[in-house]
């Protein structure tokens, strides 16, 4: 027995929306999805006319849907934005090379300029080479820290005013949970923000236009629109902690679909008691990137790789920053701890 669309009451409904419980046909769903992203953009004033906006594009479902929807809305509502795709090549054979092929097809399909920056050109290390040195334990730390900075560097090269990323409601809810579980108060406070102001030299403001879009709807939007996206798990990604948070949220969503926005709502409304010590944001004294330490995480990780001490940037070794900056050798005891990679 086909269910009719609760909006137009004419066509056959194709999905039940997790956020509202409404049953919609394809056309009404496309419209509702796009309008909600438009509302998010307008109410949070994410963009101003004339801006150049770089879309962080991985070839995956979220960034593909983001690129498509932004292009549609930019035309429908005359945002006056210059959109372009910005991709990072981490240097992961059999994964990123394939997904970048998808981004290159998206560039053609959406007729948007594309810039690819690679870890190899920026840092002199591909992820394949990093994994060879550090193994599969902390590799995601390197990749995550390097990617954040790589997007900024790519954005600077293209003189982009803002970067937007495909983070969806499920991602934000997961991050809230993870920060609670880790006791990371500073990140917990920041992670629900829909946009970041420029935090200083070399850091481009970022925003998440899909912050309130459910993953289910993003996937179905891509499916019904027949968008071309890439969906293979990274060959190096165990990322177990996020995996648990994710599975837990999906279980909650199955019982109570509003769980996702509810967790985001909780995160948004947390207030941190006065007197809780927060890291003070400054700048890296080597590269100038934002950092709460003398050296930014990226520089410390890189120093560790180049010195053959991969654990230098893993865990807390702040007291060694002075020595690194002064290019002083470490003691044998210090080196011994940083070499030991437990596979």
């Amino acid at each position: 027995m086909p269910v009719l669309c609760s909006s137009c009451e004419q066509k056959r409904a194709v999905l039940k929306r997790p956020k509202t419980g409404h049953s919609l046909c394809k056309e009404c769903f496309f419209w509702a999805f796009e309008e909600e992203v438009h509302q998010t953009i307008v109410s949070a004033r994410l963009f101003s006319p004339g801006e150049t906006v770089g879309i962080g594009a991985s070839g995956g479902k979220d960034s593909t849907v983001l690129a498509h929807v932004l292009k549609v809305l930019n035309e429908r509502y005359s945002y006056g934005l210059k959109l372009l795709l910005l991709s990072v090549d981490e240097g992961i054979t059999g994964y990123r090379d394939d997904s970048l092929e998808t981004v290159k097809r998206n560039q053609q399909q959406y007729d948007l300029p594309l810039k690819i920056v690679s870890y190899e050109e920026l840092y002199g290390w591909t992820m394949d080479a990093i994994v060879k040195q550090v193994g599969l334990k902390n590799n995601c730390t390197f990749c995550g820290v390097f990617r954040r900075q790589a997007l900024d560097r790519g954005a600077m090269m293209l003189k982009v005013d803002k970067i937007c990323t495909g983070h969806n409601a499920d991602d934000v809810a997961e991050t809230v949970l993870m920060n609670v579980l880790r006791g990371d108060i500073a990140r917990l406070r920041r992670c629900t923000a829909i946009s970041t102001a420029s935090e200083g030299e070399g850091v481009v403001p970022r925003c998440k236009p899909l912050k309130y879009a459910y993953e289910k709807e993003i996937v179905l939007y891509a499916y019904f629109k027949k968008l071309d996206y890439f969906s293979t798990e990274c060959i190096y990604s165990p990322n177990a902690y996020r995996g648990h948070a994710r599975a837990f949220l999906k279980d909650l969503e199955a019982v109570r679909p509003s769980a996702i926005v509810d967790v985001i709502h909780s995160g948004e409304n947390l207030s941190v008691r006065e007197g809780v010590r927060m890291p003070v944001q400054g700048n890296c004294s080597r590269c100038g990137y934002i950092s709460s330490q003398a050296l930014c995480k990226s520089c410390v990780l890189l120093e560790g790789l180049n010195r053959g001490l991969p654990k230098l940037g893993i865990g807390k070794h702040h007291r060694l920053h002075g020595k690194i900056l002064a290019r002083e050798p470490l003691t044998q005891e210090e080196e011994r701890k940083l070499k030991a990679v437990d596979f």
Binding site: V14, K16, E233
Partner: peptide, 30 residues
């Protein structure tokens, strides 16, 4: 048949000859 199974009775839906069933994982990276 191209509609969310939540609209079709989920586990209780009775399959017909020539039905089309699609499973899409959302658990993979974006």
């Amino acid at each position: 048949n191209d509609a969310d199974w939540e609209l079709m009775g989920e586990l209780t839906y009775q399959l017909q000859d020539q039905d089309n069933v699609v499973f899409i994982s959302t658990l993979h990276g974006g």
